[in-house]
């Protein structure tokens, strides 16, 4: 996906193009984001971020910024306050909604391309996602924190995103993708071990790591279907790993 951002002054445009490069382009966008700086901070406690979605129309709020739009028209309005011109939290939610329309989702995960196929590694904070990305060597890292999964005939594709983690901007340098080889839920250990998860385990482990407003029943319903499709199409493991480069030999042996 590539986004075009309109309505920004030159300094904000430079910031957005640097922060989200190579996911922001002035040409041939998947979605156009119209930004208007109309919101201002008000005193008092900030309300919780909220998101609603109905028949393709969505509205997001992460104080003091708001976004809304019709995803079918591929045009979205961001009304932003002081701070980043494209609030990363809203931008990530927007990407989550766009993916949801096609049966995909954003997962709290890192991903590395090995022999042309992507290994994805998920888990809560400090489970080892960035550590594994750091072990990639010459292999391409799609991201160390947030990976997009899109359904394709026969499986899923893992796609890079601009939402990097503690590895910093170097973990989001390319707008690349690769067929998903497998997904692993991480556990740090002294040695390597793995166990293939059942479909119910896959969905139960992945559900909390998906970046969407899951308190909306329609969103939760759709997400269950998407994760069930992932569980059916892709091998998913629980992986105990030691932070050593032999990891890739071990993964090769999983067949």
């Amino acid at each position: 996906m590539v986004f075009r951002v309109t309505g920004l002054g030159a300094p904000e445009r430079r910031w957005a193009e640097e922060r989200y490069a190579p996911f922001v382009s002035r040409r041939a966008p998947s979605v156009t984001v119209e930004v208007a700086a109309t919101e201002r901070y008000r005193p008092g406690r900030a309300p919780r971020p909220v998101a609603t979605w109905s028949n393709g129309h969505f509205a997001l709020a992460s104080y003091p910024s708001r976004a809304d739009g019709d995803l079918a028209r591929r045009r979205v309005r961001f009304r932003v306050g002081p701070g980043p011109a494209l609030n990363p939290e809203l931008f990530r939610l927007l990407c989550g909604f766009l993916l949801m329309r096609e049966g995909g989702f954003l997962l709290h995960a890192s991903a590395v391309v090995d022999h042309g196929r992507a290994w994805a590694f998920s888990g809560p904070s400090a489970s080892g996602k960035t550590t594994i990305a750091g072990l990639a060597g010459d292999r391409q890292v799609l991201n160390d924190e947030t990976v997009a999964f899109r359904p394709v005939p026969g499986g899923f594709t893992a796609c890079a995103t601009p939402f990097y983690g503690s590895g910093g901007p170097t973990m989001a340098r390319a707008n690349a993708r690769a067929p998903l080889r497998a997904l692993c839920f991480l556990r740090k250990a002294d040695r390597f071990a793995h166990r293939r998860l059942t479909p119910a385990e896959v969905v139960a482990r992945a559900f909390p790591e998906v970046m969407l407003p899951k308190r909306d029943p329609r969103v939760a319903e759709r997400l269950l279907a998407s994760l069930a499709a992932l569980a059916e199409a892709t091998p998913v493991y629980e992986l105990a790993f030691a932070p050593r480069a032999e990891l890739w030999d071990y993964l090769d042996g999983l067949g």
């Binding site: 119910a200 896959v202 139960a204 269950l224 069930a228």
Partner: peptide, 8 residues
């Protein structure tokens, strides 16, 4: 999912 289920 298979014979198991998840309820949200």
């Amino acid at each position: 999912l298979d014979t198991e289920a998840l309820v949200v």
